[in-house]
């Protein structure tokens, strides 16, 4: 089934937000990625058709942005921040832990297809580093024990209660 067939209403709602169709390109690429975990060539061609663009116009745009995967990634995409602020408080050690626990380095996926590791630049979490993002969730103030629990949670239930909620740091004083 094509995206237009499966998500007719959602696509219409996205298009309605903008006076110029091309503005819907990034939102539609997100929709395609949500569907298959990465943006397929078929999806790019279809999105081009929906927006009245050529496939190269879609391709030139999708390749500019780091959040779009152009090939499949693991079920859980671990992205560790390696920028200076996190590096000052130990992000290189987090990379070593992940490497030791999962046997993967940056850019690699575990053989079971569960985990992919990427190193990324600043995720606006500098006061609560070291940190990582896994799929849509942030995990902050990482320790080795916390990383163990997160990985175990994800393996067993697909999600972890250790993910960050609405951000505030330092936390408000308790009365």
């Amino acid at each position: 089934m094509t995206l237009s067939e499966k998500y007719r209403d959602e696509i219409a709602a996205i298009l309605a937000r903008y006076p110029v169709k091309r503005s819907a390109l990034i939102p539609l690429l997100y929709l395609a990625q949500r569907e298959q975990g990465y943006v397929t060539e078929e999806a790019m061609v279809e999105i081009a058709r929906i927006l009245g663009l050529t496939p190269p116009q879609v391709y030139e745009t999708v390749t500019f942005y780091t959040l779009f995967n152009l090939k499949p990634v693991g079920k859980f995409h671990i992205q560790i921040c390696k920028s200076l602020m996190c590096a000052l408080v130990g992000s290189d050690t987090v990379i070593e832990w992940i490497n030791a626990k999962l046997g993967i380095g940056p850019g690699e996926t575990t053989p079971d297809g569960l985990f992919t590791l990427s190193l990324v630049e600043c995720l606006a979490s500098c006061g609560t580093g070291p940190m990582m993002q896994i799929n849509e969730d942030y995990y902050e103030r990482l320790t080795e024990e916390k990383v163990d629990r997160i990985l175990a949670d994800l393996r067993s239930t697909g999600s972890s209660s250790l993910k960050s909620g609405p951000f505030m740091w330092p936390e408000p004083m308790k009365t």
Binding site: A124, C126, P166, F167, M168, W169
Partner: peptide, 16 residues
């Protein structure tokens, strides 16, 4: 688009 390394205030304003 809060992305400047070292900056994490807008995230808190929006989420809280």
């Amino acid at each position: 688009d809060e992305s400047e390394p070292g900056t994490f205030k807008d995230r808190q304003l929006m989420e809280r």
